[in-house]
């Protein structure tokens, strides 16, 4: 336990020392909100429903986007380079277990993503006066569930790809279509039918559906499909991550 805490703390510091990962988790969602906010209405007037609602809907979408980016990029890159550079090799000579190493990564990226989302919400509130009408606890639970379901992907990629470079490329190839087609950037309602079909195959779609529903006060029961898909991802992610973990 002591070593898990130490490792988590050290990994958190390392995460923040890496400018790219700190930027994409903490700053990028906020930046997206400000850019889209500027597009939707340069001077949001409190009380005018349309702008507020449009910007309100962006917050769960960008939260989902953030989960997608973090699950695929920092987790994959960190784990794959740790293996390729012999960092895991050094750890292997100590009593540290794979489970602890992965748990420390999960805690770090989860907390960082949560901080980024918190910044996003604060900005929504302060700049655009977004009103949150859902249940905060339910939303927090949904955020945690979605994050954990998604983070497994990074470990699986890191464990199965032959080199850090291929892992990173595959992660990017998976990430871009998801960001564009899953409703993270613009609402699925505006997509043509053919694109909608594709988006049904993208796991991030279910993250965003669930988060958006919870954000607007819908219940978990109204999102059984999303919950089902993500639960399968969660279980598969944990099992395959442990199975595919390689020290070198």
């Amino acid at each position: 336990m002591k070593s898990l805490l130490k490792m988590t703390w050290v990994e958190a510091k390392l995460f923040l020392r890496e400018p790219a990962s700190a930027f994409f988790t903490l700053i990028f969602p906020l930046l997206m909100l400000l850019i889209f906010g500027a597009i939707y209405g340069a001077n949001p007037v409190p009380g005018t429903d349309s702008t507020e609602a449009a910007i309100g809907a962006l917050i769960p979408a960008f939260t989902g986007m953030s989960i997608g980016i973090v699950g695929l990029m920092p987790v994959t890159i960190t784990m794959a380079t740790y293996r390729e550079n012999g960092i895991l090799r050094r750890l292997r000579t100590t009593p540290a277990s794979p489970l602890m190493i992965m748990a420390a990564q999960v805690v770090v990226v989860f907390v960082m993503t949560a901080l980024g989302v918190l910044l996003l919400m604060i900005a929504g509130k302060l700049v655009y006066h977004v009103q949150f009408t859902g249940n905060a606890l339910s939303l927090a639970a949904g955020f945690t569930f979605c994050s954990l379901s998604f983070f497994g992907t990074g470990f699986v990629l890191a464990g199965t790809m032959p080199t850090a470079r291929t892992a990173q490329i595959v992660a990017m190839v998976l990430m871009y279509p998801m960001l564009i087609l899953s409703g993270a950037g613009w609402p699925r309602e505006l997509m043509p039918a053919a694109v909608l079909k594709i988006s049904n195959f993208l796991p991030l779609t279910y993250v965003i559906n669930l988060l958006r529903g919870l954000w607007f006060g819908e219940s978990w029961g109204q999102h059984l499909l999303d919950v089902g898909v993500l639960a399968v991802m969660l279980i598969a992610g944990v099992l395959i991550s442990l199975k595919t973990f390689r020290w070198e």
């Binding site: 002591k2 070593s3 805490l5 130490k6 490792m7 050290v10 510091k13 390392l14 020392r17 890496e18 740790y82 550079n85 012999g86 960092i87 090799r89 050094r90 000579t93 100590t94 009593p95 540290a96």
Partner: peptide, 30 residues
Amino acid sequence: RLRTGMQLQQSNLPDRIKVWEALDLYASFY
């Protein structure tokens, strides 16, 4: 792993970890 110390021909630490952090972290394993 508990009772021997190993220095490998090929191994590494994260680039940005500080010397004291590495020692403090590895000490926590034992």
